[in-house]
Computed example of a mutant assay.
Amino acid sequence: MGQYGEQKYWEERYNTEQAPFDWYLRYQHLKPLLAPFMTDESCILDIGCGSSKLAEELYDDGKKNIKCIDYSANIINKMQDANISARPEIDWAEMDVKAMSFDDETFDLIIDKGTSDAILCGTDSYAQLSSMLKEVSRVLKKGGVYVVITYGVPATRLPHFEKEEYGWKVDKLTTPKYEGAPPNQVYYLYVMKKVSEEKEEERNDQEDEVAVTIESDAPPKMSSPGAETGASPSTNEGNGDENLIDFDPPPEMQ
């Protein structure tokens, strides 16, 4: 499964694979979950689009301002050729999600269906995902939403998503893997809403008020273990390999 994080794997796969492939869920299942975050005028980005039919189905549902990126030139060329007549307004581009060429604050909605999961299967996965999330935050509009559809449980995903530097608030949703699935058979949707400037100022003011209150009520400081020797608390950065344990390859959906 480590190959899912490697560009060479996807180029070779798309060179031989002809049928569309959708990770996890198709648009008809995701539509009611995505609907609150988009209108027909929304500027939408599908990152790591692969051969998914998501963009095509969004387009057929009235969303015409769609951009799709993937670092596989092979699949971008195939998808562009397949849609040039029926869906000419979809913009397909070969691009690395960790170094996007879009302007700051371009998109109202960014959809990640399995791309984060693939990155977490690769080498130096934590740093690679961090680079991607910084870029996603950069190109997402204030008030815009980044939605991640994944098998990843909160314990393995929230530590990556809930970082102040990205400037968003994270909510978690779940949806059954299939109709009639037991309660423990779910996919997760992490919804990151970029904080507007007004909300950010309001939040900063609230944090300042809390800080003043805490400082005024705080007891005398106690030395932490190791303070006398200058020792630092131990850390375990990890490389993402533990994320492979809960990998649940979805069935191909035609």
Rank of each mutant, 00 (worst) to 15 (best):
L30H: 10
D40Y: 02
S42R: 01
L45C: 08
L45K: 06
I47D: 02
G50M: 09
K53A: 14
K53V: 10
L54A: 04
L54S: 07
E56I: 12
L58E: 11
Y59K: 05
D60R: 10
K63E: 05
K64C: 04
K64D: 05
C68F: 14
C68Q: 13
N74K: 13
I76D: 02
N77W: 04
N77I: 02
D81E: 12
A82L: 12
I84A: 14
S85I: 11
E89K: 10
D91S: 14
D91Y: 11
A93I: 15
M95D: 04
D96F: 11
D96G: 12
V97G: 11
A99S: 14
S101A: 15
F102K: 13
D103W: 07
T106S: 12
T106N: 03
I110H: 08
I111R: 02
K113P: 00
T115H: 04
D117K: 01
A118V: 01
L120F: 04
C121I: 02
S125N: 04
Y126H: 04
L129G: 00
L133C: 00
V136I: 14
L140I: 08
K141I: 05
K141M: 07
G144R: 04
V145C: 12
V147R: 00
V148S: 03
I149V: 15
I149S: 03
V153K: 13
H160G: 02
K163P: 11
G167F: 04
